[in-house]
Computed example of a mutant assay.
Amino acid sequence: MADRMHGRPAPATESEVRDWDDPDPSGNTYTKVAFIDLDLTEVANTGAVFEQCTFRGVRFNASTHTDSAFVNCTFIGSSFFDSTFTRCKVLGSRFDRCTFGLFKVAGGDWSFVGLAGADLRGSEFSNVRLREADLIRVRCEGATLRGVDLSGASLQGANFAKADLRGSDLSTVDPHTVELSGAIIDMTQAVVLATSLGLDVRPS
């Protein structure tokens, strides 16, 4: 089982689902359930709540998740190609050896999430809370992160080359340890980054 951020173990599960015909979790609540090797491709989930669940080898490709919650969940070896999360709460969840691609997140709270080392190239995050998230060595080249709250996030070794970061909180970004070449930023962010480099920014 994957370790969680700060050394916390993943929650133990109490039941398993390995065969789910015509899955539709909308409106249901699942607690401490292990979902193993399921195909949730193109599932349209609205309002489901997953608490302390584990998803191992689950295919979320082209699925949509709206106003749903994945709280303190663990995703292991799962795929999220062309999946969309809208206004979802993914607090404290961890993604381990998962694959993405055309991944979209609009709104919602992803604080304390663990995405260390994830390949999020070309993904889109808009108006999302990623406070204190583990984004160490995350690959976001060419990604869009507009209006994202990255306050307190761990970003050492992250790659945001050619990413669109406009409107995002970059107060904890260290330009010495984060790749930012070609990234698109606004004037306010430019001042923040210049200050973090030790420059004395003054009006002309």
Rank of each mutant, 00 (worst) to 15 (best):
I185N: 04
R87V: 10
E124H: 12
E124K: 14
A161T: 12
V105R: 04
N127S: 14
V49L: 06
T29D: 12
S154M: 09
A34N: 11
K162T: 15
P9I: 08
A10G: 04
L193G: 08
G142E: 03
S123W: 06
A34G: 04
S151C: 06
T31G: 05
F75W: 07
L199F: 15
R4Q: 06
F85Y: 13
S93P: 02
G114W: 01
V90D: 01
R56K: 09
D37Y: 05
G157R: 10
F60D: 00
G92P: 02
G122R: 09
L145Q: 09
A163G: 09
N127R: 13
I76W: 08
L197F: 14
P9D: 03
S154T: 07
R121D: 09
S154R: 15
V201K: 11
E179R: 13
R131C: 03
R202D: 03
L180W: 04
T13W: 14
L38K: 02
T86S: 11
T46H: 09
V33I: 13
A34K: 13
A118H: 07
F70L: 05
P23I: 04
C140S: 10
T86E: 15
V178W: 07
V192Y: 07
T54A: 11
F112G: 01
L102G: 13
T41S: 10
A48C: 07
W20S: 00
S171A: 13
F81V: 12
A44R: 10
Q52I: 02
S15H: 05
F80M: 04
D96W: 09
A116I: 12
G92Q: 04
W20K: 00
Q156T: 15
K89M: 11
I184A: 15
E42Y: 12
L40Q: 03
S196M: 12
L135S: 02
L102I: 05
V128E: 08
F100H: 01
D200S: 12
A69P: 01
L197M: 15
R166A: 04
I184C: 10
A153N: 07
N127A: 10
D22C: 08
I185C: 08
R4T: 01
T13E: 11
G7P: 06
D149N: 15
D164R: 12
T13Y: 14
L150N: 09
S126D: 09
C73R: 00
T54E: 11
G182Q: 07
A143F: 08
D3L: 14
G198I: 01
H176G: 11
T13M: 04
D82P: 00
S154V: 00
H176D: 14
G7R: 09
I185H: 05
F103K: 01
I136D: 08
C88T: 06
D39N: 13
I184L: 14
D21P: 10
V128Y: 00
M1C: 07
T172Y: 15
S78P: 05
S26V: 05
Q52D: 14
R131D: 07
E124I: 15
D37V: 00
D169Q: 11
L115H: 09
M1Y: 11
R59Q: 03
E141N: 10
R94S: 13
T188K: 13
A161G: 10
S126E: 15
A183M: 06
G157S: 03
E16W: 05
